[in-house]
Amino acid sequence: MLRYMLKRFAQSILTVALVVLAVFMLLRLMPTSGYFSREDYVTMDEAARTAYLRTLGVLDDPFTQFGRFASALAGGDLGRSITVYPRTPITEILAEKIPYSLWFGVAGISVSMALGLLLGVMMARYKDGPTDWLGTAYVVVVRAVPSLIYLFLIQTAASRLLGLPMIFYADDVSSWILPAASMALPGLAWYAIWLRRFMVDEENKDYIKFAVAKGVPRGKVMTGHVLRNAIVPLVQYFPTQVLLTITGSLIIESIYSIPGMGGLLVYAIRQHDNTLVQALVLIYSALVVAGVFLGDVLMALVDPRIKLSSAPVEREAA
């Protein structure tokens, strides 16, 4: 196990480094005129434009720039934003924004996991009954209707109906309810439908039929065997989902004016903010890699049949 973990860790570091290098170099291929508005472009002469680009640090050789980035990173310095929040240390921006995304993300995941798993169990337990139909209808609506439609409906109609604020205010707890609920809706559907599917699959397996035939109570079969085995494929994604809450939700943070991380990467790319993009890519890719790794470990812990090491399994003598 330890050997496996060390190997995966080394692979992870390499993967993240390659991703960051690739993005870093690709960013340097973008045309520099993107740093100027139309007005700036015509007002400034070539020399002035060059001087401005030099202040942004985007004119040096890309490998020199990467070396500078890597050595600063080694000292824990992610650099400063150049166009999104000019000259502001990136660590300062992240420190402001991550807590919002993390809080709402964790709240959303907690609600969606708790209610989604419960709904999935109920749908599987009462398959083809009203609970299953209603659950399926909910899942179909959430997954088929463009999210902007129902999210905007919640924001306007539900906020009016319940007397809740339309946007998020840090000092007003009531304003946290709708964004957290909106955050939970798609995840809830995802957990419910997949758990139902895996549980129904398990229920049809021979060992379950055997257990039922032997007279094991249905409740015990569902929780002790069906649920336990059905949840294994889902467990793998938990760490990634939790870790990626840091990246925020583009749509929900946007409509509720939550100053989180959602949309920051897209905006940074559009604004040609190389330093911010590479910092975010570094963080996001590290989170994904860590999430996948932790997912594997978690799956091995939940399911004793899964071995992460390639050590030979000792067979019991017949």
Binding site: D40, A48, Y52, T55
Partner: peptide
């Protein structure tokens, strides 16, 4: 120019 004030033009 080190301060990058574009409007100075």
């Amino acid at each position: 120019p080190a301060n990058g004030i574009k409007n100075v033009s």
